[in-house]
Amino acid sequence: MHGAVLSHTLDTRLVGIAILVYLLATILYFVYVPFRHRAVGITASLVALVGWGLVTASMIARAVISHRLGWGHAPFTNLYESMVFFAWAIVLIYLVIEWRYKNRTIGAFVMPFAFIALAYTTIGPGIRTQIEPLIPALQSNWLVAHVITCFLGYAAFAVSCGVSLMYLLKAWASERGRDIGFLPDLRVLDEINYKSVVVGFPLLTLGIITGAAWANYAWGSYWSWDPKETWSLITWLIYAAFLHARFARGWRGKKTAVLSIIGFAAVLFTYLGVNLLIVGLHSYA
């Protein structure tokens, strides 16, 4: 049937190429970090940009194909599509930060997340790459707003997790009297960690609100303590604690870095863990 015909459409082939391009970008960032060769750094950025362009093209192609099939829906409706969007959003947010802070070393700690997310679309359990028509519950504009805000937020949290790992690594070394010179300054890492959470938190909030609005239209209840909802709230509470700790109690550095990493672990559990381990309303994505 349709599935067999569509399993190797243009969009999945583009993602296949993009996986390799993301891998190449990851390797280039890894090479750039210790050697600081300017040409390598620029190449890494360009390769990342090309990969991001390929993923963009893939999402457009997928929307067009689904439209031609008469199902016409935005490509944000199942695990595969959300994962591709996640990989897209991570690189987008990373490239903006690279441009704003003129620092490429962060790429070595963020690009792997994007690569793993994209590679997961081909090896992850239970991922269907076929373009499928939308079941009635998913036919909602709230869904599109929900997925876009959630995953842009998740991507910002991925960046904050990446720089927090860098922070802990550098702090751990410096406590032992060694300086990892090629990593950015601790102050810069701390700042980017905070800035990413400041971007991610309102997006996650919007994601939860649009999800609640959708649930209210589809199921007649904006909040039903479904495991996915609860885990999104847990994630929200962790980042809320992060912001209060940082704003009002002046937590800096290691403590907030650890909170960031715990927060991102909660993000991953909300996104994947709940689906793999717990059954609930979100069982389709």
Binding site: W225, T230, I234, L237, I238, A240, A241, H244, A248, I278
Partner: peptide
């Protein structure tokens, strides 16, 4: 604000129980 941060963390941790035990 120590209370605030503690409450947020405690709420986060205790909320997990309801996702593991049938409600």
């Amino acid at each position: 604000l120590k209370l605030t941060i503690s409450l947020l963390i405690i709420l986060a941790i205790t909320s997990i129980s309801g996702t593991l035990i049938l409600q």
